[in-house]
Design a protein around this nucleic acid. Structure first.
Length: 923
DNA sequence: GTGTTCACG
DNA sequence: GACGTACGTGAACACC
């Protein structure tokens, strides 16, 4: 019987990535950055130690990527194209990491033109042929295709082994078929195209049904769903190419590296210690001594240095004594990561269920408060073990409100609202979501799961794993406490880790002031606004709904009569068929999916030609929109307890720095048509109050005049001139007096176009004129205002060079496709780059005004005035009638002076203020 | 889940 | 000369 051999292959690049992002920047005495080297060394030492306690390897190697380019770029040049280049302070560490590997007496292997995964595949295949066992240390899903009876993956971070079963759980197919699935669904991270419209679920189903990719492509014509069939037929080439991209090469020419050269050599303490000393790794030295010195893996390692890779320790706090101990620890450290668990995403309807806290990486607790048994019999002897809510909250309140203790959260606005419901005003705070947003706006989302994956390499337990999904989903109070505790504690733990990682990087990038002066102080202001809500007249909304329904029914009958058949007017496909196939109207155009467009501008043109049916469809659509999106939906959004509507403002969604509003969206309430304004009239002031609407006049054009430094525009704003009329007179050479409204309208469109990064096509479409005519307008505009063109060119250049643009207050907006090869994508990005500093500066300005507003109103002796809504350039207030007149000048002053003292704008800001019983009248 | 349409700034 | 676009959002609905 031969000794069984076991080969371990470590995905070195994955280790580097995790090490780099898990540790704050560190430098050696000579200034060389070494955080990744240090993290990597620790991880490798831990791995070597751990595996020797379990299934000891006989052979061992660490595999690296040689360079960014591989043979895959010859197949498809966009492969991994939008991977950002390695950060500057990581580049010099690559060589050191190979040195580190060698210091452990472990071979470091790489090969020009191939990725680490291909080398791993090659060794794994060879070892299998010899009857060895293979363990690949990585969690990269691209390696899952290699799994078999003898080959498994090991995720050393989660201490989890991935075999054929786990692969099947993830991909829905056996490991051999993983590449077929990946070929279909593609991979946006690596830029593997796949087939459009097919995601992992569909791909797995198709491969399960047809056996493999080639059979599927050959029989694609049989697919029932037309869209899917077309896509499969049209993108067969992409699918085959994608398969080539994801298929790992198992014949990388590694002649020099025979398997026996990977045989394990024992570590040489001198060599390893010399490496540790060269790099100033004192803690590593200590660990090596403890590990190799007496041969027994130590338990007394220096904790502080190993927290990032240490196993987690989550506990349940259901005794006051335990809670007191946690509170004492928090007082000691002065900082705590907090997360709340509740019964709803809407803080105005949510009930607090439990609280989790963390003060150091890997350690967190969960305080269950209002869990119950699913049968509702949560009394008697069967009571769940949890602290009385009142006792726990009174113990925590001093901590949460203590000005010397920093509370860190992920989207802490939500938790603050929840605590506010319990009479606790959380302060001071920091927010990892906002830190990420300020740093990486435009690069990726800022949800916790995404940040955790990205920066820590940890996939948090999905919410659906504890609460279920769909019809069977339960509220968090019904989740068993043990399960809830792990989920909740993990969230607080991850929030803390993200905070320690990301907060220091804010200062490096010079973005600290944006975070500290623009985002963080806005959080409590938004909490108050959301909690205040706005009163909506429910009866009025139902009247409108009934009226709209009646109008729709009448129009529907007429439309069906005109069409000669009954069809679903709301279906663009059916409507397109009626208009352009059955009635054979001209002027139809097909979109990129090949469907007839039935958009308003198409129907408008048809109506203008005298066709009655499209005209009636337009009216029907308007009523349908108003009913379903507004009169019906807003009624349902009225909170039963407050009788008001409470939106949620998202602070980390937009790429420009604007807020957005959801559930419901109160930033798109109709105003442009009389019917629409009736919706707006249902937004009313409470009894004895009035609404005040204050909006910045032409703020974006004013900012443009300042940024591009256009004397003529600055002058016009200083004199209070009609800016669109001025543009009209300049571009069309007509006098300002007695301006023809149609000419002014064209000029207004040009002005908006400029802000949007104008194109002849866009302007032509907007004004419904020819491309040549639009081009002539634009040329004339730039002729008159050459500084605007200079600004645009300068901004694009900056975006191309740095990948981002900035606002006047230093906010950064990353422009992701700015250097794309696809000219269309690039042009899109360039327009976004031109727009972002203007839109973003306006957003910064109104945020500054909002932050100062509460104090300014207090200082003016007006404590009863509530700020309710923000709509990008407008603020809505509710004020007792007798205080309205006093409030107006305060509001106006704060808004108009919002750039001071940081920025002295070269144009005045002007704010229009109106008041009324309802939002429409306040305009 | 994706695409279309349309409400807002 | 072709590409196929005005910037930024969110919600409802149809259709897979």
């Amino acid at each position: 019987m031969t000794d069984s051999k076991h080969l371990y292959l470590v995905d070195g690049s994955g280790y580097i990535f995790r090490a780099y992002h898990a540790l704050p920047p560190m430098t050696r005495k000579d200034g060389t950055p070494v955080n990744a080297v240090y993290g990597f060394s620790n991880m490798l030492l831990k791995l070597l130690k751990d595996v020797n306690e379990g299934e000891a390897p006989t052979h061992f190697a660490v595999i690296f990527d040689a360079a960014r380019k591989s043979f895959r770029n010859d197949i498809y040049d966009a492969y991994k194209a939008h991977r950002p280049p390695a950060p500057d302070d990581l580049v010099p560490q690559f060589a050191l990491i190979r040195e580190a590997t060698n210091a452990f007496n472990v071979p470091a292997i790489e090969m020009e033109g191939y990725e680490a995964d291909d080398i791993i595949a090659t060794f794994a295949t060879r070892a299998r042929a010899e009857g060895w066992k293979v363990t690949i240390v990585s969690s990269d899903k691209d390696l899952m295709q290699l799994v078999s009876n003898d080959v498994s993956l090991f995720d050393s971070m989660k201490n989890r082994r991935i075999g054929a079963k786990e692969v099947h759980d993830k991909f829905g197919v056996i490991p051999e078929k993983v590449i077929d699935v990946q070929a279909l669904c593609g991979d946006s991270v690596d830029n593997v195209p796949g087939v459009p419209g097919i995601g992992p679920k569909t791909a797995a189903q198709l491969i399960a049904d047809y056996g493999d990719l080639e059979t599927l492509l050959a029989r694609a014509g049989e697919i029932k769903q037309p869209k899917r069939r077309e896509n499969l037929l049209a993108h067969a080439y992409d699918a085959r190419m994608s398969k080539k991209l994801v298929t790992l090469h198992c014949d990388v020419p590694l002649e020099d590296w025979t398997l026996d050269k990977l045989a394990v050599c024992s570590m040489e303490p001198e060599k390893l210690l010399a490496f540790a000393d060269d790099n100033g790794f004192k803690a590593l030295r200590a660990r090596v001594v403890s590990h190799l010195g007496d041969g027994i893996p130590g338990t007394s390692l220096q904790e502080a240095e190993t927290t990032e890779i240490k196993a987690t320790n989550y506990s349940i706090v259901d005794q006051m004594a335990d809670l007191e101990r946690w509170i004492a620890r928090i007082r000691d450290t002065g900082i705590v990561a907090v997360d709340t668990e509740t019964t709803s995403l809407d803080p105005m309807r949510a009930e607090l269920v439990g609280i989790s806290l963390s003060v150091k990486a890997g350690e967190a607790c969960y305080i269950p408060l209002r869990h119950r048994k699913s049968d509702g019999l949560d009394f008697g002897t069967d009571t769940l073990r949890q602290l009385p809510v009142k006792d726990a909250l009174s113990a925590l309140k001093p901590i949460l409100e203590d000005p010397a203790i920093l509370k860190v959260g992920q989207n802490i606005k939500y938790d603050m609202a929840i605590f506010a419901n319990e009479g606790i005003r959380v302060h001071p705070i920091d927010d990892t979501m906002l830190i990420s947003y300020v740093r990486d706006c435009g690069l990726h989302g800022h949800g916790m799961d995404e940040l955790s994956e990205l920066h820590l390499g940890i996939t948090p337990t999905p919410f659906k794993d504890v609460a279920g999904t769909g019809k069977k989903q339960i509220t968090f109070d019904l989740v068993p406490i043990e399960k809830a505790a792990h989920y909740a504690a993990e969230d607080a733990d991850i929030t803390g880790r993200l905070y320690r990682l990301l907060k220091p990087r804010l200062a490096e990038a010079g973005l600290l002031s944006v975070y500290e002066r623009l985002e963080r102080p806005l959080v409590p202001v938004l909490v108050d606004m959301e909690r205040a809500g706005i009163k909506v007249d429910r009866a009025e909304l139902s009247r409108l709904s009934a009226e709209f329904a009646e109008g729709m029914a009448r129009l529907e009958t007429e439309i069906h009569e005109l069409a000669g058949e009954s069809f679903n007017i709301a279906s663009p496909a059916q409507l397109g068929h009626i208009l352009f196939d059955k009635m054979d109207l001209k002027g139809g155009k097909k979109g990129k999916t090949g469907a007839w467009s039935t958009s308003a501008d198409v129907l408008d043109k048809l109506a203008a030609e005298g066709h009655t049916l499209p005209e009636k469809v337009l009216s029907w659509r308007q009523l349908s929109k108003l009913k379903s999106t507004y009169s019906d939906a807003l009624g349902k959004a009225i909170n039963e307890k407050t009788g008001r509507v409470h939106t949620s403002f998202s602070m980390a969604i937009t790429s420009t720095g604007r807020l957005s509003s959801t559930d419901p969206n109160l930033q798109n309430i109709p105003i442009r048509t009389p019917e629409g304004r009736r919706i707006r009239r249902a937004f009313v002031a409470d009894t004895g109050n009035l609404l005040i609407a204050a909006d910045y006049s032409q703020i974006e054009l004013r900012i443009l005049a300042h940024i591009a430094d256009i004397d003529a525009l600055k002058d016009a704003f200083a004199k209070g001139m009609d800016i669109h009329a001025l543009t009209a007179s300049q571009v069309f050479g007509v006098p300002m007096e007695n301006m023809d409204p149609a000419t002014r309208r064209r000029a207004k469109a040009i002005n908006f176009g400029i802000i949007y990064g104008i194109s002849a096509f866009g302007l032509a479409r907007q004004l419904d004129i020819g491309r040549d005519e639009a081009k002539a307008y634009i040329d004339a505009y730039f002729e008159r205002f050459p500084g605007i063109r200079t600004y645009m060119e300068r901004t694009k250049e900056q975006a191309h060079e740095t990948g981002h643009v900035t606002t006047l207050f230093g906010r950064r907006s990353h422009v992701s496709d700015i250097n794309a090869k696809n000219p269309n994508l690039r042009a899109f990005a360039e327009r976004a780059a031109i727009n972002a500093p203007i839109q973003g500066t306006a957003a910064d300005i109104i945020k500054r005004a909002m932050i100062r507003m509460p104090q300014a109103l207090l200082d003016a002796g007006l404590p009863d005035i509530r700020m309710l809504l923000q709509v990008h350039d407008e603020l809505i207030f509710e004020a007792p009638k007798d205080q309205v007149e006093a409030a107006i000048p305060v509001i106006r002053r704060v808004m108009e002076q919002a750039t001071a003292p940081v920025l002295d704008l070269a144009v005045p800001l002007l704010v229009d203020v109106g008041t009324g019983e309802n939002w429409d009248d306040a305009h």
